[in-house]
Lab assay of single mutants.
Amino acid sequence: MMAYMNPGPHYSVNALALSGPSVDLMHQAVPYPSAPRKQRRERTTFTRSQLEELEALFAKTQYPDVYAREEVALKINLPESRVQVWFKNRRAKCRQQRQQQKQQQQPPGGQAKARPAKRKAGTSPRPSTDVCPDPLGISDSYSPPLPGPSGSPTTAVATVSIWSPASESPLPEAQRAGLVASGPSLTSAPYAMTYAPASAFCSSPSAYGSPSSYFSGLDPYLSPMVPQLGGPALSPLSGPSVGPSLAQSPTSLSGQSYGAYSPVDSLEFKDPTGTWKFTYNPMDPLDYKDQSAWKFQIL
């Protein structure tokens, strides 16, 4: 009977010793046993002879290597770790002494450095960015050149030099007046198309007034536009458009034309069986010896 009264063996659950049927240790109110408190290391007290050895090595170098620390530790009968900690504390003490010396050398008012006064946003004049500046400075420094007289040679050079070769001289006033084509001369031969040399188009003023001019072949195509416009036809070669000034309004060009419109200028042929003959000019830059190549039959 006494065997049943004795408590059973101890069981360990999660490293906790349980005594038989008792489960009081598993209750929430019972805390787990805490780790033992780490003991504080005792402070090391250095003797005068030990301090002399350490100070002598510190005077040589503030960062001794492990071999120098072990050698000193053997002399003063201390572990190497204590020597390492002593050098660490000695360097910190040396830095603190240097900072105190710097503070003593500075004057009393030198510690508080005078800061520059901050400028207020409204006091300083700042350039306004509302208006974009002129990058080319046209509004201040540029002045347009004065327009020359209508009959000045410089204007003629600016007008005619675009179309004339570089080897030719500017046309005088008398020749510029001949550039304007007359109405009857352009409409006299509506079906004849003559190819003149390129030099005649640039230099010869008579080429624009003769039936064999460069633009005589364009007349049949330009004249039928007159009834559609409801007024006189516009002429690209009329009046002052080739003269001194090219800047004319469309209203000033509306009254200039080749001449009176005639039914002869239409595109319809009077004789459907007729042929169109292209007159060959020996001055043509295209060297075609066979003139029969310039004739064709309209079917």
Rank of each mutant, 00 (worst) to 15 (best):
M2R: 04
M5I: 12
P7T: 12
P7R: 05
H10V: 15
A15G: 08
L16W: 09
A17I: 14
G20K: 11
G20V: 12
P21Q: 02
P21G: 07
P21Y: 11
P21R: 07
P21K: 07
S22T: 05
M26S: 03
H27E: 03
V30I: 09
V30D: 02
P33G: 07
P33D: 04
S34M: 10
S34W: 11
P36N: 08
R37M: 06
Q39F: 13
R40G: 13
R43G: 15
R43I: 14
T45W: 15
T45Y: 08
F46N: 13
S49L: 11
S49I: 03
Q50R: 14
Q50E: 12
E52L: 10
E52Y: 07
L54H: 12
L54D: 13
A56I: 07
L57P: 14
L57W: 10
L57F: 10
A59T: 06
K60G: 10
T61W: 08
Q62D: 07
Q62W: 05
Y63R: 13
P64Y: 14
P64V: 13
V66S: 05
V66H: 04
A68Y: 07
A68P: 15
R69W: 15
E70W: 10
E71D: 09
E71F: 10
A73R: 12
L74C: 05
K75E: 14
I76M: 10
L78M: 11
L78W: 13
L78Q: 04
P79E: 03
P79T: 08
E80T: 08
S81K: 05
S81E: 03
S81Q: 01
V83R: 10
Q84M: 03
V85R: 07
V85F: 14
W86N: 14
F87L: 13
K88M: 15
R90K: 07
R91G: 11
R91E: 14
R91C: 14
A92E: 11
K93E: 15
K93M: 14
K93N: 15
C94F: 05
Q96V: 06
Q101G: 09
K102E: 02
Q103E: 04
Q104Y: 07
Q106R: 09
P108C: 08
G110Y: 03
G110K: 11
G110V: 01
G110E: 03
A114V: 06
A114W: 01
R115H: 05
P116M: 04
P116T: 05
P116G: 04
A117D: 01
K118C: 01
R119M: 04
R119T: 01
R119E: 01
A121S: 07
A121P: 09
T123I: 07
T123E: 03
T123G: 10
T123M: 02
S124K: 11
R126K: 06
P127H: 07
S128W: 07
T129L: 06
V131A: 04
C132R: 08
P133S: 07
P135S: 13
L136D: 11
G137S: 06
I138H: 10
I138E: 05
I138L: 08
S139Q: 04
S139I: 03
D140P: 10
S141N: 07
S141W: 01
Y142C: 09
S143H: 05
P145M: 05
P147Q: 09
G148P: 04
P149A: 06
S150T: 05
G151E: 07
G151L: 09
P153E: 03
P153W: 15
P153A: 09
T154I: 14
T154Q: 03
T155C: 10
T155K: 10
V157G: 04
T159S: 03
T159G: 00
S161A: 10
S161D: 02
I162P: 00
S164A: 06
S167P: 04
E168P: 13
E168H: 11
E168M: 12
S169P: 06
S169I: 13
P170N: 04
P172D: 07
E173Y: 07
A174Q: 02
Q175T: 10
Q175H: 11
R176L: 10
G178S: 07
G178H: 14
L179E: 01
A181I: 12
A181G: 07
S185C: 13
Y191T: 01
Y195S: 01
P197K: 04
F201I: 05
A207N: 03
G209E: 02
P211Q: 03
P211N: 02
S212W: 12
S213T: 10
Y214F: 06
S216C: 09
S216I: 13
G217R: 13
G217H: 08
Y221H: 02
P224W: 15
M225L: 11
M225R: 11
Q228H: 11
Q228S: 05
L229G: 04
G230Y: 15
L237P: 02
G239A: 04
G239E: 02
S241C: 10
G243Q: 06
G243K: 11
G243E: 02
S245W: 15
Q248S: 06
S249T: 01
S249L: 11
P250G: 03
S252N: 06
G255S: 09
Y258L: 03
A260T: 03
Y261D: 02
S262Y: 15
P263W: 11
V264R: 11
S266N: 01
L267Y: 07
L267C: 01
D271R: 11
P272R: 13
T273P: 02
F278D: 00
T279M: 06
T279F: 10
Y280F: 15
Y280H: 00
N281Q: 13
L286N: 03
Y288T: 05
Y288N: 09
Y288L: 09
I298A: 00
L299F: 06
